[in-house]
């Protein structure tokens, strides 16, 4: 290997998948580590470029981390994610990062936080939820509102039904678009559920992520409930190749989602072209 005085940001580290958790029929969480331990230490909301060398490379949000590994939850939607879903523990992957700005933690310290997520959109939000739990004294009340298409499509069930409800001063509300015989919880879409639960904007910051259509209606619901644009934070996705603001494609106006995002306040988003 050539001796490099500088690190080339476009060349990944060799990593290994050490554990795979099947979250739903089309979502798996991959635990990735390297020979030297955790590939890097991201802040909540930051991203990683993950690759199978012979298939491709794509940007994913990092949903959580341990002392020795990163956790990346991936929905099966295309060629690379299909191949990743077929991988077994022990698989070598390429990994580089961390990328992006992450959640603006300063905005959250001392506040009550309302997390609203749909489907795989819980993945980036979960990194912040876990951070808030680890640094519990720095944050106020935590309220997690989450929805998926069906009970089988709920991601991170252990967190939703066991871990998070046990956290002090934390509330979890779950809905599904359509239940099954065993489902005793709420049925209905996330935005309507949010309006029904009627959280007060007083002293709160809201974080939302999910399918674009859900985000759109959740933002409307939050505005209806009296949340201001600077109280609402969301995280975006775009097609990315380089991850470092050079390859061009993830721009929203003059900002690159890989570098200047993926986290934006609604106030920032309203100043940017509506092209995501």
């Amino acid at each position: 290997m050539a001796v490099e005085a500088r690190v080339n940001p476009l060349v990944p580290m060799e990593g290994r998948i050490v554990k795979i958790i099947e979250e739903t029929p089309d979502v798996k969480t991959f635990h990735v580590t390297t020979e030297k331990g955790k590939p890097f230490t991201p802040m909540p909301g930051q991203l990683a470029m993950l690759s199978l060398f012979e298939v491709g490379e794509a940007m994913f949000s990092i949903t959580s981390q341990g002392p020795e590994h990163l956790e990346i939850a991936i929905k099966r939607v295309g060629m690379l994610t299909e191949a990743l879903h077929e991988a077994e523990p022990g698989q070598t992957v390429g990994i580089r990062g961390p990328y992006g700005n992450g959640f603006p933690l300063d905005m959250f310290y001392g506040k009550d936080i309302l997390f609203i997520a749909g489907g795989i959109g819980l993945a980036p939000v979960r990194s912040l939820i876990n951070y808030c739990i680890e640094h519990r004294e720095k944050f106020g009340h935590l309220w997690i509102i989450y929805g998926a298409r069906s009970p089988a499509d709920l991601c991170f069930k252990q967190d939703l039904f066991e871990n998070w409800p046990r956290v002090e001063n934390c509330r979890v509300d779950v809905t599904v678009d359509k239940g099954d015989e065993g489902w005793k919880g709420h049925e209905g879409f996330v935005p309507a559920f949010v309006e029904k639960l009627n959280p007060s904007p007083e002293g709160k910051v809201a974080v939302t992520c999910g399918p674009p259509i859900m985000i759109k209606f959740v933002l409307q619901s939050l505005e209806k409930l009296g949340f201001r644009d600077d109280q609402i934070v969301t995280t975006l996705e775009m097609r990315m190749k380089c991850g470092i603001g050079k390859c061009g494609r993830c721009n929203l106006g003059s900002r690159y989602v890989c570098l200047d995002g993926p986290v934006f306040t609604l106030a920032q988003l309203k100043e940017m072209p509506n092209e995501y």
Binding site: M1, A2, E4, N8, L10, V11, P12, E14, F53, E54, A87, E88, G90, Q91, T92, V93, G94
Partner: peptide, 17 residues
């Protein structure tokens, strides 16, 4: 940008000069 060699689950990358 770089080369790789894949063998089963293992893979190795080599930077280009």
């Amino acid at each position: 940008m770089y080369r790789y060699k894949v063998q089963g689950q293992d893979a190795e990358i080599t930077e280009v000069p």
